[in-house]
Computed example of a mutant assay.
Amino acid sequence: MAGRKRQTATMWQVAERAGVSQATVSLVLNNVGGSRVNDATRERVMNAVVELGYRTNAFAKSLRSGESGMIGFISDEVASSPFAGRLLKGAQLRAWESGNVILSVDTFNDPNLEAAAIDMMLSYRVKGVVYASMYHRAVDVPAELQAIPTVVVNAQDRAGGVPSVFPDEEGGGYAATRHLIDAGHTRIAMINIQPPESDLPAGIGRLAGYRRALAAAGIADDPRLIRSGTGVVEDGFSFTLDLLAEADPPTAIFCGNDRTAWGAYRALESRGMRVGEDCSIVGFDNHDMLAPFLDPGLTTVELPYEQMARQALGILLSDAPDNPPHTSVECSLILRGSVTSAKVRA
């Protein structure tokens, strides 16, 4: 026989159990400041709440107050990505710390699904929306989001009207290249993750950081040491073989992402060379399913997914009228075994 549906306790029942009025229960549960409810009465009310398993009607409360305690999180496919999902994790943790919860939808770049998600979130009276991207790019924020506080994360609002939080790609490229320079390398190649004509901020910034580090160290920028790939393992493999065939091959390679670095590992192995000992490699992303498990472990630059999300939530929940339009977050260098001191060539 099917079990009977459990009856939901009411505020009247809580009041009866605690021996107080429903108004007193409401004052306690809503934590109304300045109310004359003494500590003993408050304790009796809370004990009755626990004993009866009473739950407030969050929807009704949102209708009265105009606030739902929810924050919208709209993304292309962040929640279903194996590593960009840390954006959602950071947002959830920061929201929970402030007494809020995240209402998340992946739209998979479907404009109809995105429009429906925005309409749903507006109907739920979310406090604001985090508009997120799986990879760093310029985005067009939907006009419907102008009605509520919105922050773009891991991307930049093309129009510049919405606060944006994104990784410091150039700083990451500089840190990666500087680390190789500090290890004594002067013939440093770069395999980028996009063609020169691409307008994506990631590859543009990482290449700019590479060049800035060389210039700061007084090392000439040799165009023969730069290759433009698409961020896949196969590019890392073929371009590394190409670079090793140069008359004066590099002793180190900065790869624009960890998948490219994996391809570079495979290329060196195919030539009977050892990563670190014969050629140092640095990646970008700190892909946790890849970078620590290569042999040797890959020194790489970490994309600050959780930090970006936390900063975005901080801006969204801030009462400050003038939030920064652009906030770049540092990309940290993660040291492993793929970089060693440069060997002196005869």
Rank of each mutant, 00 (worst) to 15 (best):
S338T: 07
D288M: 12
G161H: 14
L88D: 06
P223K: 09
V37D: 00
A208E: 06
G72N: 06
V141E: 05
S228E: 13
M134Q: 12
G297C: 01
M1V: 09
V49L: 14
G69S: 05
A155D: 02
R158N: 01
Y305A: 13
A189D: 11
S104A: 15
L122H: 12
D322N: 13
W96I: 08
I148K: 02
I181C: 06
S238C: 05
A115C: 06
A40T: 11
L243Y: 04
N192A: 15
V28W: 10
A245Q: 13
V25Y: 01
L103V: 11
G72L: 04
G171M: 10
V152A: 02
V50W: 09
E77M: 15
R125S: 10
T10Q: 09
N286F: 05
G128A: 05
S133A: 15
R64A: 13
A132R: 03
T327L: 15
D199F: 12
M11G: 11
L244H: 13
G229D: 04
G19Q: 09
N57K: 00
V126R: 04
G34Q: 01
G276I: 00
R211E: 14
F254T: 01
A252D: 12
F284E: 02
G69M: 07
F237Q: 00
Q146M: 12
F239R: 05
T299Y: 02
G3I: 02
V339E: 05
G172E: 03
A216T: 11
V162A: 03
L294C: 07
V50D: 15
A48T: 09
P321L: 04
R206I: 01
M273C: 06
L214K: 07
R336C: 07
S26E: 01
G203I: 00
S332G: 04
A247T: 14
A48Q: 11
F239T: 01
R345W: 13
S238A: 14
E269A: 15
T230R: 14
S341Y: 09
R55Q: 14
V339D: 06
Y135P: 00
T240H: 12
F284N: 01
V28S: 05
F166M: 13
Y174C: 05
Q92T: 15
R271A: 09
E67Q: 15
E97R: 12
A95F: 13
M1T: 08
A40V: 13
Q146A: 14
F254D: 04
V37H: 00
V165N: 04
S123V: 07
F83A: 00
A60Y: 08
C255N: 11
G53D: 02
G99Y: 08
Q307H: 12
D319G: 15
D248G: 10
I71T: 03
A252V: 09
E51Q: 14
R274M: 08
D168T: 03
T327A: 08
S35P: 00
A176H: 04
R17E: 13
L225W: 04
A346W: 12
T300R: 10
R271Q: 12
T56H: 00
D258E: 06
D221K: 06
E67I: 14
T327K: 06
S98M: 13
P324Y: 10
A18E: 03
P82Y: 10
